[in-house]
Design a protein around this nucleic acid. Structure first.
Lengths: 338, 338
DNA sequence: ATATTAATGACTAGCGCTGTCATATCGATA
DNA sequence: TATCGATATGACAGCGCTAGTCATTAATAT
């Protein structure tokens, strides 16, 4: 019934110490010994007792995912990616949704790590973009990986997985320009999310490159929400000189803009092109379907977790982080097709 | 730095065993002793080490949430509700998405419980509707709570939280009838989800009560997906005698139907009324917004977890389960408003 | 064959808590 | 006040594993 390390040792004909060595990937175990042990493990379906392991080694085999994001699809994708990596490496995932704006969020996270004896943390925006959090975690020697908006690996972003929102936004904007639009508006997401800034920067860069003058009035601040999209579009459509295309910072905003356009009996895309970002499931389900950029969230999350596991294994001294960069890919759909 | 039970015992002037008793709410500890200990706990900010607890007691303070549902909003809501209850009771939540159709799902779940030493399980459809799973869990003495579609508490549903889809569907149908419709169609969800059957039953009951003859051709089998809604609506709209209202088994399906209606240039709700179910966030964001029924998922989940914790504490012998029933509430929006 | 290194095992000591069982304390009764 | 049953508390072992220390053996080099 309950298989312990002893049973494995007996079956493999080695000492429990050796089994322990194998289970923990310690060096200086001969390959055929490893094989013998692994065979026994498989035969007995041995699963080390996590509690005992944690207790004895005072570090756990679980990582935490701290998030505060209203987008369910995003979270689920992230979770699934993280879980995939966790399963592969025998870790457990502890999810910790919380309010990013709470005053002592740093302490809350620190508490979480201590209480649950977490081996590490995966942070997504806005947590991945809090310098004071990163600093504190570093100080305490807590391993973590951040998923963050950015295009260029750098020393400051040591333990980061980068999402190149800039380039993706640049491409979406180019697509809009290719459709013959020149009066482009931009609906921003939350200011404190750097993705919003990056996307806006990509948007501006594309205009500049084509020599198109940017109309500052066409840049509408907002948040990553449907309501914000409705409002933003309202503002734009009330202008004497309306834009002919809207680039929304994400699909929710774009869906809001679409909703507003429909209220105003404006034909999409004939009278107004709308593009989103993120490739949420519903971006295919709006009418017309939204042009957007696909962010492979679960793959990104999986990579982030892999990176974290690597980090956990090496001493911080010789830490040598890769910085994978993902460029969301342009998906052209009817909402912008001439 | 690290506070152990010893520190608390010393400060409170009692033995560690007594502290343990207090921490576990065991009876036969005098009130003033409890107070002394709790004061020490508070002063030292003591947090019991979960790993040690698990190891010593061979049962853990985590529960599992097993699910297989494509609906991200649903999952997130459930998770949040479960987490709320977990935090309150000092439990941890282990999420376990998996494929419900895999052949040996029962073993997989059993494995999960054993490997992670789970204290209990929360099951949502379709897992909550697998008699063989429930039987096996019962046999192994594993505590679990099911969230399930049903209206009447009964012995067979001992450890269940019920969602009264029947009544909710009955009310939605009544609303449709009140709008003057008499040619009502129904787009089914997955057959293996009993919610689909319950909702259909409620639909039929409402028609019967009003003495309206049911057109069997108007009942379209399908799955809980947008695509299914598109297809179902296509079938209905291709009929010589089209229905004037569609009741979709959930919002996704309704959104699909909406999409299809738009493709066919059919005006909603003037030419066709469409109602959904679930109150997904996007049901407010379609055009026009969808009439639906609100299922308070996170509250339901929280209740389920509470029930589970109760179950964990009592011996199965004197188990005395409540069976809370939730009736999703009708939300009338533009998609059905005359 | 011998020196040198790499693999492995035997043993021990915990990790921080809970379970068992023995002991101490208490209130009530005779 | 002595006695008893019930209640409250403590001493101690052990959960299953890791990690350290040496001692021992096997593999490789000289």
């Amino acid at each position: 019934m309950k298989v312990t390390i002893n049973d494995v040792a007996k079956l493999a004909g080695v000492s429990i110490k050796t089994v322990s060595r194998v289970m923990n990937n310690e060096p200086s175990v001969r390959q055929d010994t490893v094989d013998k042990v692994m065979a026994a493990v498989k035969q007995l379906q041995y699963q080390p007792n996590a509690a005992a392991r944690n207790l004895a080694s005072s570090k756990s085999y679980s990582i935490g995912y701290v998030y505060d994001n209203p987008n369910a699809y995003y979270i689920i994708d992230m979770q699934n990616g993280l879980l995939e990596a966790c399963r592969k490496h025998g870790y457990e995932l502890l999810i910790h949704p919380t309010n990013a704006k709470s005053t002592n969020i740093v302490n809350e996270v620190l508490d979480l790590v201590e209480r649950s004896r977490l081996a590490g943390l995966v942070l997504t925006p806005p947590f991945s973009e809090m310098p004071e959090l990163a600093a504190e975690l570093d100080k305490k020697g807590i391993d973590f990986v951040r998923i963050i908006s950015g295009s260029t690996p750098s020393d400051k972003l040591k333990n980061c997985v980068l999402i190149d929102d800039f380039t993706a936004a640049f491409r979406i904007t180019n697509h809009l320009l290719d459709q013959g639009h020149s009066k482009l508006a931009f609906l921003c997401g939350d200011e404190e999310h750097s993705s919003s800034g990056e996307r806006l920067a990509g948007f501006k860069a594309a205009l500049t490159k084509r020599g198109i003058t940017l109309n500052d009035d066409y840049i509408i601040p907002g948040t990553y929400s449907f309501e914000s999209g409705v409002q933003g579009a309202q503002t734009l459509l009330a202008m004497a000189d309306k834009p002919s295309a809207i680039f929304a910072c994400n699909d929710e905003i774009a869906a809001g803009a679409l909703f507003c356009a429909r209220l105003s009996h404006i034909n999409i895309p004939a009278q107004l092109a709308i593009a989103g970002f993120e490739n949420s499931p519903f971006s295919r389900q709006t009418w017309p379907p939204l042009t957007t950029a696909n962010q492979p969230n679960s793959i990104i999350a999986c990579q982030a977790a892999e990176l974290l596991f690597k980090a956990c294994k090496q001493t911080s001294a010789n830490a040598n982080f890769e910085q994978p960069v993902f460029v969301p890919e342009l998906l052209v759909r009817e909402s912008t097709r001439a």
